[in-house]
Amino acid sequence: MLDTILSFFKKKESSKDVAKERLKLVLIHDRSNVSPQFLEMVKGEIIKVIQNYMEIDEESLDIQLTKTNSEDGERMVPALVANIPIKGMKNAGR
């Protein structure tokens, strides 16, 4: 039901709104590609926060900007995917 309503509204969306939406998404990806240091910065900050609570394997930590299906499954959206192996919990987390 909700899908039907959503698709009804979608058809009425003007082509400039479609253009704007697509541009915004593609630019998120483009802009992150411009500086490779960007992900390193994000990575460093995430490690700092998580280390307050858990012991993590910094060596095999992997962070990527990729695309994934949106919740309605109809288009691709950018996503930050982090794979952080945990070695153990710290006392503060208990």
Partner: peptide, 19 residues
């Protein structure tokens, strides 16, 4: 121009100019 391709490239150029 008001087209997706031109605006995208403009964004890239703005980044490079600032760099």
């Amino acid at each position: 121009t008001p087209e997706v391709s031109a605006v995208r490239d403009a964004d890239r150029i703005i980044g490079l100019l600032e760099a």
